[in-house]
Simulated assay, not measured.
Amino acid sequence: MPNSKVLPLVESEASEGVAPCCPPLTERPFTAQEAETAARMFKALGDPVRLRLFSAVASHEGGEACVCDISDVGVSQPTVSHHLKKLKDAGLLTSERRGTWVYYRVESSVLAAMGRLLALTPVKAA
């Protein structure tokens, strides 16, 4: 798998900003590449600590959270960093270093793409 190209959950398009990588599950069967991308996201969210961290960032005031604000999930700081890296690698979080702290953000386009992927009926992008 190291040599396989995996799409991010959302892709940039010059004319429309951001588009989902994959169609809704109910629209048609996934291609192999789409399945890889969706599986990477679900795998990242399949760990309870990662899901808690993702939720903490997504629900934090202002839509972003300093690692110092979300690290109380019952594991050590190095383990929190490992899980945050996995979420970033899956395309679910972005980060920005400010001084000694790193701030994490869940882009609204990622949440929208996840919603479209899980929609019962195809949802037209706004």
Results as ranks from 00 to 15, higher is better:
residue 2 P to K: 02
residue 3 N to V: 15
residue 5 K to L: 14
residue 7 L to S: 06
residue 10 V to A: 10
residue 10 V to K: 06
residue 11 E to A: 12
residue 12 S to Q: 13
residue 14 A to R: 07
residue 15 S to A: 11
residue 19 A to I: 05
residue 20 P to H: 09
residue 20 P to W: 10
residue 21 C to T: 10
residue 21 C to I: 09
residue 21 C to Y: 09
residue 24 P to M: 05
residue 26 T to P: 13
residue 27 E to R: 12
residue 28 R to K: 09
residue 28 R to N: 08
residue 33 Q to D: 15
residue 35 A to C: 14
residue 36 E to K: 15
residue 38 A to Q: 11
residue 40 R to L: 08
residue 41 M to F: 01
residue 43 K to Y: 10
residue 44 A to L: 05
residue 45 L to I: 01
residue 50 R to W: 02
residue 50 R to L: 04
residue 50 R to Y: 04
residue 51 L to C: 01
residue 54 F to P: 02
residue 55 S to F: 00
residue 56 A to E: 01
residue 56 A to L: 01
residue 59 S to D: 03
residue 59 S to I: 00
residue 60 H to P: 07
residue 60 H to T: 05
residue 62 G to K: 01
residue 63 G to K: 04
residue 64 E to N: 07
residue 66 C to F: 04
residue 68 C to G: 07
residue 72 D to E: 05
residue 76 S to L: 00
residue 77 Q to W: 00
residue 79 T to K: 02
residue 81 S to A: 03
residue 89 D to G: 10
residue 90 A to S: 12
residue 92 L to P: 05
residue 92 L to A: 06
residue 96 E to S: 14
residue 98 R to W: 13
residue 108 S to G: 08
residue 112 A to E: 06
residue 114 M to T: 00
residue 114 M to C: 08
residue 116 R to K: 05
residue 117 L to R: 00
residue 120 L to K: 02
residue 120 L to F: 04
residue 121 T to A: 10
